[in-house]
């Protein structure tokens, strides 16, 4: 599978990343190489093998349903760029 410049620009936009023009084709080549490697791995027969969703061979432990967090709003908001009436302010988003 070949990743072209257009795909790189699309991925960059989705990830909200800035990509320098001169880097685009380099990224495209590297990603194409990665996908080729994955393609090669996919040729292995994996019938009857449970997919691995986490490399650790363990299962999740869960916690009790208890409120354990204190209100630390003042501390968190002290490092926020802008706050008002307890709200974090961000550039206007229009729905």
């Amino acid at each position: 599978m070949k990743i072209d410049n257009e795909v790189i620009l699309n991925i960059a936009e989705l990830a909200q990343l800035e990509v320098k023009d001169e880097m685009i084709s380099q990224y495209a080549d590297k990603m194409t190489a990665m996908l080729n490697l994955i393609e090669e791995m996919q040729s292995v027969n994996t019938d009857n093998i449970e997919p691995v969703s986490n490399p650790l061979d363990a299962v999740q432990t869960m916690r009790e349903d208890k409120v354990t967090e204190k209100d630390l709003r003042d501390e968190y908001q002290a490092i926020a760029p802008e706050v008002d009436s307890g709200l974090y302010l961000v550039p206007r988003v229009v729905e």
């Binding site: 802008e82 008002d84 009436s85 307890g86 709200l87 974090y88 302010l89 961000v90 550039p91 206007r92 988003v93 229009v94 729905e95």
Partner: peptide, 15 residues
Amino acid sequence: KSLHENYHNQTGIDL
């Protein structure tokens, strides 16, 4: 929750 009113043309966020 996003609040779009009354924040000096900014959006207020309540998490």
